[in-house]
């Protein structure tokens, strides 16, 4: 039997059935109960759940995540049961050949698509339990997205692209403009505020996208092949920028990629193949290997 504490008088209340007011002081308990219900909902389906340990260590967890696309009569499995724990503040790369399910996994973690089976938790909240409003909230405030094709809104300037998520988050105009300028300054585009995407180079567009992904200070930045459409040098710059955000800002970065330059900066690398996790490499185990790889593949600048 769960017990809750009245936020008003501190009395301990048994939550058998539905309690809406505190028997001691008649304070409204609906908020507390709703929170409790949500916590119960999120823990459902877990094997073992120890609040004190797991609550904040893993920012994203997937359990038995599966996705099957139906193409006409044929069922194509894109993910076949992925168990993945992403630590708070780490730089995780998801590597694999094209068609291995990288983007599908990216979509599931980002709440952009619904899994056929299994569950995905963001900060211990089961995404399947969220309504449209909560999902939008999550996408707006908790997750920043970076795409291979940049996906800027073509009719908006760099500044407007960056401030759009802030409009959705209900930020005031002045604050929004200041923050948008700061973010664009940070990615080195302080002098390109009023340029439209088509007036910017690929690297610059991706920088705008990075700035936009940080608009509402997300806890997670999801990057789907962020360097896929960029040349080596520009790709390197974007990777450095992401690494800096990760190191200095503590943002968890999850990046789907098959760019070897990414190995250099990743804390862990998840290799997926045919919709399954093949192996997970820790950076510590990779140091030596990267020493040789890096000198071959990453050009000096």
């Amino acid at each position: 039997m769960a017990k809750i504490e009245c936020p008003n008088c501190g009395a301990e209340i048994e939550t058998a059935g539905i309690v809406t007011v505190c028997p001691e002081c008649n304070a409204d308990l609906r908020d507390v109960m709703e929170k409790l219900a949500r916590e119960r909902k999120t823990s459902r389906g877990d094997l073992v759940r120890d609040d004190s340990v797991t609550t904040h260590e893993f920012i994203v967890r997937t359990r038995d995540l599966a996705k099957i696309y139906t193409m006409g009569e044929v069922e194509v499995p894109a993910l076949r049961g992925v168990d993945l724990d992403v630590r708070r503040g780490e730089y995780l790369s998801i590597m694999g050949p094209s068609g291995s399910g990288k983007t599908t996994l990216f979509n599931m973690i980002g709440g952009l698509d619904k899994p056929s089976d299994g569950s995905c938790y963001i900060e211990e909240v089961d995404m399947a339990q969220l309504d449209a409003f909560e999902l939008a909230w999550l996408r707006c405030r908790k997750i920043g997205y970076i795409f291979q094709t940049f996906n800027l809104i073509p009719v908006m300037t760099a500044l407007e692209n960056v401030t759009l998520p802030m409009i959705f988050a209900g930020m005031g105009t002045d604050e929004m403009m200041d923050r948008g300028r700061e973010l664009l300054d940070m990615v080195g585009l302080g002098d390109r505020l009023h340029h439209k995407p088509f007036e910017l180079s690929g690297g610059q567009q991706q920088r705008v996208a990075v700035a936009r992904s940080l608009a509402n200070s997300p806890a997670i930045v999801l990057a789907d092949e962020p360097t896929g459409n960029l040349d080596l040098q520009t790709g390197k710059e974007i990777i450095d920028l992401l690494k800096e955000l990760n190191r200095e800002g503590g943002v968890t970065i999850i990046s789907a990629t098959h760019d070897l330059k990414m190995i250099d900066v990743s804390d862990r690398i998840v290799h997926i193949r045919d919709g399954e996790v093949e192996r997970i490499e820790e950076r510590a185990d990779l140091e030596l290997e990267i020493g040789t790889l890096g000198s071959e593949h990453v050009p000096e600048h």
Partner: peptide
């Protein structure tokens, strides 16, 4: 600029669920 959102998501979802 990129400070992490503190607190549990469940709690925050409840407190500031506003998208406008």
């Amino acid at each position: 600029l990129a400070k992490m959102g503190g607190g549990g998501a469940a709690e925050e979802l409840h407190i500031q669920r506003q998208i406008v």
